[in-house]
Design a protein around this nucleic acid. Sequence first.
RNA 1: GUGGGUGUAGCUCAGCUGGCAGAGCGCUGCGUUGUGGUCGCAGAUGUCGCGGGUUCAAGUCCCGUCACUCACCCCA
Length: 429
Amino acid sequence: MVMFTAPKGVPEYFPPRSAAFLAVREALSAPAQHAGYEYVELAVFEDTGLFVRGVGESTDVVSKEMYTFTDRGDRSLSLRPEGTAGVMRMVVEQRLDKGALPIKLWYAGPFFRAERPQHGRYRQLQQVGIEAIGIDDPALDAEVVALADEAYRMLGLTQFTLNLTSLGCGACRPEYRERLTAFLDSLELDEATRERAALNPLRVLDDKRDEVQSKLIDAPLMVNHLCADCSDHYDLTREYLRAQGVLWTEAPRLVRGLDYYTKTTFEFNHPLLGAQSGIGGGGRYDGLMASIGGDSLSGIGFGLGTDRTLLACEAEGIDVVQGPRIDVFLVPIGSAARLVAVRTLAQLRAQGVRCDMSFGERAMKGAMKAADRSGAPVVLIIGEDEIEAGVVTVKNMEDGTQSTVPLTDVVTFVSSKAQIIPSERQHRS
RNA sequence: GUGGGUGUAGCUCAGCUGGCAGAGCGCUGCGUUGUGGUCGCAGAUGUCGCGGGUUCAAGUCCCGUCACUCACCCCA
């Protein structure tokens, strides 16, 4: 017999953790939804050329981590390794850029990178992302960063950090890049590092090794060589962040792996996640739309890692899912009671009460055990005695007390009671 | 792609210099013929990852292989 397993590096979520995953995904997008961002459902695979031109041919993500295949029409397609390029393609293709600006969009779903799996690093990874396109205003940079910060804080995370910098633009970065290259050429570096420097010298700046970092103390930094436009933009962005009470660390050596980033760039990290500590990141990408054949519209956005954020919550001991998953559980004993239970269950659900019942010919003991495992705080027992008396026994599972309610009143009685239960477990403020 | 670690019950793991396959949790039943959770008692569950070798004897030692995992790299 063959035993099938999920492909390597694909995290799956099943009860009870799947509920936490869902709650994290909801929490990550909630602040953006409150801020007017609208949902988009994107293609999960795209023309390979979109990522080559948009994300950048020299990036690791595109050059060696894409799942690329040829379809029956000999088209080269790739599973999306990130979301921004696809959003920009949609905006250009659907002419969304001809409407009101800025275009504010959010998305969520799986992305794919053929990497060696590790704690928090998966081949199928889940992200929640937002993009604000078409207006080059530092207030939007600040909004995007603040929405990510708000999402993490809403979940109850306290230990994450925000690293922020500016990567400059097409006007000032090439000059800086030359300066940095000249500096790196003057150092004695190992071959792998030299190759990295040739491909993207900025990448060398965030090398983790102390022996490399010690040589970089005097390295020129982008933030000290910004043009007037980039410098003003960064100053205003920080002023607006301060105005919203967002705290951050200046990270002049922060580098991102995707070529399209310009100006404001940021990364959220969590110290309890090990090597893969980035729980979210993003930045401005003013040249991206033009590079894939659209107008020269600016944009800024983030991608937040749903898997890693869940890991971060677990590492901080946060219960993302609070309270029971249902409010009421029905325990019918005997066929007459079962009919009553099926009808009552439907009526309760129509009232919006979350409820379930014991299925199968279970004896009272087994049915009560099922009731207990459901987590429902209230159990309705419907047996032969109750049927005969025209009542339902209502049991409080926390203190074990019970009372009888006429069958005709039970839906009203329970639904008014169920209204109270959710308020007892409101989200932290 | 490179390096390290680990594979034993559903889960978490113990098993010493080779000598009868174990614990906790969970699961099932009973204590209570209409009451869960707590408590007590009883019970079920193994290709010791897989293949080969050494040995009277291998979960244990050796070789190979696969899987998982941590780190490099990269990134969410």
